[in-house]
Nucleic acid binder design. Structure first.
Lengths: 350, 350
DNA sequence: GAGGCGTCGGTAAGCGCTTTCTCTGCTAGT
DNA sequence: ACTAGCAGAGAAAGCGCTTACCGACGCCTC
């Protein structure tokens, strides 16, 4: 109860002195060790620690042990529900293994991603989890891999989320398959004149989803022409503006697929602002199943990714606590969710 | 370019040897120091470091310096947009000061909050930011304060977000004033039969908002009777169930105020599921202005809190980089936002 | 009953850094 | 020309912790 009003935290040394034992004994009693300590000693130490309000200095411990309990998570934008859900999963799983999670944000810039990785290496984390989509053709991508390889060479573990990033462990999202299934389901509902609002061409997640969607449509003989594809930012604003662009083009459309939910939310908003009733006039579908989309009107059809699980998987994969310990990849399956934004369409349309 | 394939990261020692200088010189050249180093030496060191892929071991540095560059942020649920927006602000501001943010989650349990604080002390963070609402009457609250006081006694800084938590620095949210203004605005729109769905009674944020709302109504002579107040979880589900309960009671209502947006989203959903048209039949308002609420239908009236700014303020307050350096409190102002969920009501109602 | 062995405290040598202090080699002042 | 003074490199003592290693002690075995 009495606050020890020293000017710096109690050290193990203080505890040892207070308990009248050696430093080694104190260390062994407080911070798990293979060696046994006489119960009466242990008790004395624990009580002394209690009394002094001692908490192990994790940094010093890390230095001495040469290994840390830190997990570094790198996301594009923590306020984006996609990433915050993943983060929740990572943090949850980390808690189970007594790991501390530090989060860094890249703002979707490959350059900052690289800088971030470099900076985070200074923390000597046990694991680094990269949650953002991979990009193609970025000059930084190669440096990033080099940096990460060197990180693994020096004892770290890396896990990616989304695209296969061999030789690194990856939680694979079935972007292609999910989008394909969605396309098939939507075609089955009668949609024929389809437009896609996708992200920047170098974002692989966007490309894969677009590609899968195209494949699914093709199975129903529905073409997807270049002019029906609009590239925009991977954000709500991107979806909004892409939709404006689409509407302005005057192309006849009965369905807009946005490659992620955040964009789809922008689509719905843009449609409504343009006096088009989403769902009724034009169907809208997204991808990810972020929590928001069941609450907007109409509720969005989408492809469900169990985001929190993805985060958990990523951590387990990296720490080797995955069910299949040797696995270096783990695919999570997706599920098509049809909601009000894509009601059945009269098949005679188009 | 050539990856150093040692089994553990290069140390400063390695760099010094490679550059042919002493450890001290290497340290001084790489990690800022008051002392000057001959430019030619500095260059040699920097190049050697480059060649070896050296990055400072931040932990070791922290141990040696006796101070860290870590900020610990404690939130109830990182997947909740309220907290993830705040987190984004904290991370942003931290980046500017070269601080690393680690995030821990309490799941709204006071007990876990206390445990978390204890555990995080092991990281000897420079700053701890507690973002969750304070509670009243929790036996843990007192222990928490003791723990935090002792943390400050040993050189740490603490910042709270929401309620005044003297003697700790606090970013004050004007819950009462914001709710009052909202009530006045809504009364002005003609709402008269009001129900409130609030959180558990011990959550101070919920109580303050309820109280402020009541005050605002009173100014228009509108009463708020106990049976018009429903307590529920501070989550979307809580809002949903609270609304069901309200509807089941058969009380005549033209407006539901949920004390936060997440709950309000649940309210809207519950209304719709019950065949009531939100906005048209019953107005709905929330509090926080999380990004989601402008995208749901109808867009929610709410009280805007600049959440990212709140995060930034909290960090600056704690690090002493706030505009007013000596400040220990910073109030952020709120703004009433009226959207489609509360259209003007015929004043003859009720 | 002596040697072997297993326990378990304590001593001290690190871990990778920073920082004080020492010491050398200058420049500059008289 | 000689010393005071200063700059700046390097040696070494930490920071708070872990963990070989050492040695005292008690127990078992033959």
């Amino acid at each position: 109860m009495s606050a020890p009003v020293s000017k710096s935290p109690a050290t193990l040394h203080d505890v040892a002195r207070e308990a009248g034992v050696s430093l080694a004994t104190a260390s062994r009693s407080l911070n798990g060790s293979a060696r046994k300590v006489n119960e009466s000693y242990r008790l004395r130490v624990v009580e002394a620690a209690q009394r002094l309000g001692y908490t192990t200095n994790l940094f010093a411990q890390a230095v001495a042990k040469g290994s840390t309990t830190t997990v570094a998570l790198i996301v594009a934008d923590i306020a984006d529900p996609y990433f915050s859900s993943i983060a929740a999963g990572v943090i949850d799983a980390a808690g189970n293994e007594n790991l501390v999670v530090t989060i860094a944000v890249t703002g979707r810039s490959s350059e900052r991603e690289l800088d971030t990785v470099r900076a985070l290496r200074g923390q000597r984390p046990k694991v680094m989890i990269l949650a953002g989509s991979r990009t193609t053709g970025s000059p930084y991508e190669e440096h990033l891999r080099a940096e990460l390889s060197s990180f693994e060479d020096t004892g770290g573990k890396v896990a990616f989320i989304s695209q296969d990033a061999a030789p690194f462990a990856t939680v694979l999202l079935d972007n292609r398959g999910g989008a394909r299934d969605l396309a098939i389901a939507l075609a089955g509902l009668g949609y024929r004149r389809v437009a896609v609002i996708t992200g920047p061409a170098e974002i692989r997640t966007a490309e894969e989803r677009l590609d899968g969607f195209r494949t699914g449509l093709a199975e129903h003989g529905i073409p997807l022409l270049p002019e029906q594809i609009i590239h925009a930012d991977f954000t709500r604003e991107g979806g909004y503006r892409g939709t404006q662009e689409l509407l302005a083009s005057g192309a006849p459309v009965d369905l807009i697929f946005a490659v992620n939910d955040v964009m789809a939310v922008g689509v719905v908003s843009a449609l409504r602002d343009a006096g088009v009733v989403p769902g009724q006039d034009i169907g809208v579908a997204g991808f990810d199943d972020i929590p928001t989309v069941r609450d907007i009107t109409p509720a969005l059809s989408t492809v469900r990714i169990p985001l929190e699980d993805v985060g958990r998987h990523a951590l387990r994969l990296a720490t080797g606590t995955a069910t299949d310990a040797a696995a270096v990849q783990q695919a999570v399956s997706t599920e098509t969710i049809i909601r009000g934004s894509t009601p059945p369409r009269d098949a005679t349309a188009g």
